[in-house]
Design a protein around this nucleic acid. Structure first.
Length: 480
DNA sequence: CCAATTATGAGCGTGAGG
DNA sequence: CCTCACGCTCATAATTGG
């Protein structure tokens, strides 16, 4: 059994990837036997498609994977490992009655174990170090606000080339952003709510090494209220619905049955419904992001409307064989273009001739659309996206917007190795920007089934973002 | 027509922040 | 206390495709 506490301690005391690198490196040079988590990690990471860089400079690239894997293995240990026994209260003390039946007892025990586990995690987590979300969530600054941070000092290893930009949900389980930040060269994440850029909230964290002075927003500025964004709803908006902005646009929408129930609940009242009905309707409207489209009629947003709110061109995700539900899903998983573009705007002066882009988890091409709308030419775009329909969307957008550059696409980030990256980098001289938002479904609060954190099946692909970014850094550094 | 695929509706729980 | 969250799974219904 691996010494869980020692590992956790080590993880806590390690400050930054460099420290992790050197620790692991020293272990290896000293010829010491690989410890359990590491060998587990190597097995874990011994997947088809992963090929470490060859040659004299391979050590860093290998170490990168090494660290990822070790981290993952350690996290696994934390899940599987037995917790220290707590002597005082047990389930029977909490639930005074004797268990009613076997099933119930099992259920209660499960709950108890989970609670104990969390209590343990809390007790042993360095609370001071946990990243807290800013309020208001305006990151390092938003357009038309007097308060701006114009300069920051990046840790030395964080500095490009290439520039990079990583995105994920802000409200991830505790500690997730600490881990992300630690891997991404100890850069402090920038947390921004897109409600400052459009009429819908979208609380996201961004880790990037871009300059932050002289940012500018996309023009024209999108409308910032529901009223202005969806003018047809104005006529039907009841005075007792105080919403001026929408909640986060998600991947699921309300059922037709629900909107019908709401209509029925309202039809008995001539003017204002009683308070309890108002509350019911408003709660559902907030929960499902419903808008008023007729007398007593609410409806979920149409895909076109979501496209518009997120800053995509109309019909961006329409047609080409994509179903309606897949449209909602792809849109719900996407960037808010204006928000991202504001951060990327600083690249315009740095690269007047255009950029080479590596886009991971491209989805429907939020990054590409943002750069295009900023007027930053894309010379070569390597886009990696697992969904065929999403790749088709980006491809057809690329053709319809008469892009001059090359769009090269791949399917799976896990298949991208050092050799392939080296080829690409040699063929057009390196990437200027590595951008991507890795899967959030194991981090997002809406997930009641598998909110497993960064080690979750899908969200663990974050480590591939880091692996690929670090490979690019290594290869480009080598060629200088 | 029948089988296969896809769409819909409902229910699902909790952590974190204010 | 309150609100909010780039979701998942299952059963069932609807649609597609040969």
């Amino acid at each position: 059994m691996v010494d869980l506490l020692a590992n956790r301690k080590r993880e806590q005391t390690a400050r930054g990837t460099n420290r992790l690198v050197s620790e692991l490196f020293d272990d290896r040079r000293g010829g010491s036997q690989l410890k359990d988590p590491t060998s587990m990690a190597i097995q874990l990471y011994d997947q088809p498609g992963f090929v470490p860089l060859k040659g004299p400079d391979s050590s860093l690239a290998e170490l990168t994977d090494f660290i990822c894997a070790a981290q993952m293995a350690r996290a696994d240990d934390a899940h599987l490992g037995e917790l220290p026994h707590e002597d005082e209260s047990g389930p029977s003390h909490v639930h005074g009655d004797p268990p009613k039946d076997k099933k119930r007892k099992f259920f209660e025990d499960e709950r108890w174990e989970r609670k104990k586990h969390r209590a343990y995690e809390k007790k042993h987590m360095d609370d001071d170090e946990t990243i807290r979300l800013p309020n208001p969530m305006i990151g390092f600054g938003i357009p038309d606000e007097p308060w701006h941070m114009s300069h920051r000092t990046l840790p030395e290893p964080a500095i490009g080339p290439p520039y990079f930009y990583y995105e994920n949900v802000a409200l991830a389980p505790k500690g997730v952003w600490n881990t992300i930040s630690r891997f991404l060269y100890d850069i402090e994440p920038e947390f921004v709510d897109s409600k400052y850029f459009c009429a819908a909230a979208r609380k996201r964290g961004y880790v990037h090494n871009l300059p932050i002075h002289n940012r500018f927003p996309l023009m024209p500025l999108p409308p910032s209220t529901i009223n202005e964004s969806l003018p047809l709803t104005r006529k039907w908006w009841p005075s007792w619905d105080p919403r001026t902005q929408l909640n986060c646009l998600q991947t699921c929408i309300a059922s037709a049955k629900l909107t019908e129930r709401i209509r029925k609940a309202l039809e008995d009242w001539d003017d204002e419904p009683p308070l309890h009905v108002q509350k019911y309707v408003l709660d559902e409207c907030r929960k499902w992001n419903l808008v008023w489209v007729g007398r007593n009629k609410v409806a979920p947003l149409e895909p076109d409307e979501i496209e518009m709110l997120l800053g995509f061109p109309k019909n961006h995700t329409r047609g080409g064989g994509i179903s309606r539900t897949d449209r909602y899903k792809a849109l719900g998983n996407s960037f808010q273009v204006d928000t991202v573009a504001y951060h990327l705007s600083v690249l315009k002066d740095i690269f007047p001739g255009g950029i080479n882009l590596l886009s991971l988890f491209s989805g429907i091409g939020g990054a590409e659309v943002a750069l295009h709308r900023l007027g930053i030419p894309m010379k070569n775009v390597v886009s990696i996206e697992i969904s065929e329909t999403s790749r088709n969307i980006v491809r057809s957008w690329w053709e319809q917007t008469n892009q001059k550059g090359n769009l090269i696409d791949f399917t799976d980030v896990q298949q991208v190795n050092g050799d392939r990256l080296e080829q690409l980098i040699n063929s057009f001289g390196g990437f200027d920007l590595v951008i991507g938002g890795s899967p959030c479904n194991n981090l997002a609060g809406s997930n009641r089934v598998s909110r497993d954190g960064l080690e979750g099946k899908h969200s663990a692909l974050f480590y591939d973002y880091f692996r690929i970014l670090d490979l690019v850094k290594c290869i480009m550094g080598k060629n200088q």
